[in-house]
């Protein structure tokens, strides 16, 4: 029987279509990431930790919620590794577990004001809950 790390690792690779072995560890993705300061693990670390099967550590880190899906790391990676897709797949693997939504509709009223565009709500729901 495979352990959880291996199972989720395979799933993350399948969902994201990312091949972490293309990474040359240049760190450009992390250098350009607008969320760098808020992250415990940075985009290049996501890439090599997934490669090494260090999955549960990433799944338990709040870093999975700090990605803004700005795709800067995707466009600026010289090896076309697409780190954002890995982070997205990991986040989905977390929130798809039972009772693991990071945000629910009940949280919304206290988070918004008059001017908040609908786009923010639907985006947050899509990113933080299943």
């Amino acid at each position: 029987m495979q352990n959880k790390n291996e199972l989720v690792r395979e799933q993350v690779l399948r969902m994201s279509g990312v091949n972490p072995r293309k990474c040359m560890r240049c760190g450009k993705c992390s250098a350009t990431c607008p969320s760098y300061d808020e992250m415990e693990y940075h985009p290049h670390q996501f890439v090599y930790m997934v490669e090494n099967g260090d999955i549960e550590t990433l799944m338990n880190s709040p870093s999975v919620y700090k990605c803004l899906s700005c795709f800067a790391c995707v466009d600026r990676c010289p090896r076309d590794v697409e780190p954002a897709k890995l982070i997205e797949a990991l986040r989905l693997c977390v929130i798809r577990e039972k009772d693991k939504n990071h945000m629910t509709a009940d949280d919304i009223p206290s988070l918004i004001d008059e001017d908040m565009p609908q786009q923010a709500l639907v985006s947050a729901m899509r990113k933080y809950s299943k």
Binding site: P34, S35, Y65, L68, C70, M103, L111, A120, L121
Partner: peptide
Amino acid sequence: NECCGGYVVLDD
């Protein structure tokens, strides 16, 4: 062409 933070405004 840098990000404004987007939907993270709800979470952080």
